[in-house]
C-alpha cells in the first residue's frame, strides 16, 4: 500500500511495491528499512554490498529510475512505484553486459567487493552518455572506493566498455 498523501504510515511494516531488475516486487517492510537491506535480506539480492552503511563508500550503488544512487542511504519506501536495478540484472539472457566483460578483460577487480558498485556506476554513465571520455568514466566512479586499488583497470575497463557499447 502506498503511503497516503496526507497522513503518516508506519512505524510498523507495510507493503511497498517497485520493480526490481524488470520484475515487479512487493515487500512488507517498515518505513525505516533501507533499500540496501531490503535487496539483500528481503529479496536475496546480495550483489550490492554493505561496507559502510552511511554513504561513504559506494559498494551499495544500484540504479533507481536509471540513476546511480547509494542504496544504503535510500529508504525502500521511497522507491514505491520506481524501477530498481542491481548488478544481478546487468547480464541479459546469459550475455554479460559490455562493462562486465570489460571488467574481466581488464582485470578491473581484485577482491571484487567494490565491483558491483563500480559496475552500476559505469552502467548508469553508459546509459546517459553514449561516448564517455576517460574523464567521464573517472568522474562516474569517484563515489566508489576500491581498497584493493584496482582504479587504473576500472577506468580502462569503463572506457573500453564505452567504446564497445558505442560501436554496438
Amino acid at each position: 500500500m502506498a503511503p497516503k498523501a496526507s497522513s503518516f504510515v508506519g512505524p510498523g511494516a507495510l507493503d511497498v511495491s517497485f520493480e526490481v531488475n524488470g520484475h515487479p516486487a512487493t515487500v512488507h517492510i517498515p518505513p525505516h528499512r533501507t533499500l540496501l537491506d531490503t535487496l539483500r535480506e528481503t529479496l536475496g539480492l546480495t550483489g550490492a554490498k554493505k561496507v559502510c552503511d552511511e554513504g561513504t563508500c559506494g559498494a551499495c550503488t544500484v540504479l533507481v529510475d536509471g540513476k546511480a544512487v547509494y542504496s544504503c542511504m535510500t529508504l525502500a519506501i521511497a522507491c514505491e512505484g520506481r524501477s530498481v536495478e542491481t548488478v544481478e540484472g546487468l547480464a541479459r539472457d546469459g550475455q554479460l553486459h559490455p562493462v562486465q566483460q570489460a571488467f574481466i578483460d581488464h582485470d578491473a577487480f581484485q577482491c571484487g567487493f567494490c565491483t558491483p558498485g563500480q559496475l552500476m556506476s559505469i552502467a548508469a554513465l553508459l546509459r546517459s552518455n553514449g561516448a564517455p571520455s576517460e574523464e567521464d568514466v573517472t568522474r562516474a566512479v569517484t563515489g566508489n572506493l576500491c581498497r584493493c586499488g584496482a582504479y587504473p583497470n576500472i577506468v580502462a575497463a569503463g572506457v573500453a566498455a564505452a567504446r564497445k557499447a558505442g560501436r554496438a
Binding site: 550483489g47 550490492a48 548488478v87 544481478e88 546487468l90 554479460l96 571488467f103 574481466i104 577487480f109 571484487g112
Partner: peptide, 12 residues
C-alpha cells in the same frame, strides 16, 4: 590469463 572467477565477481 583472465581471472578464473571473473564471471562470478562481475555478476554478483
Amino acid at each position: 590469463v583472465a581471472r578464473a572467477d571473473g564471471a562470478a565477481r562481475v555478476t554478483g
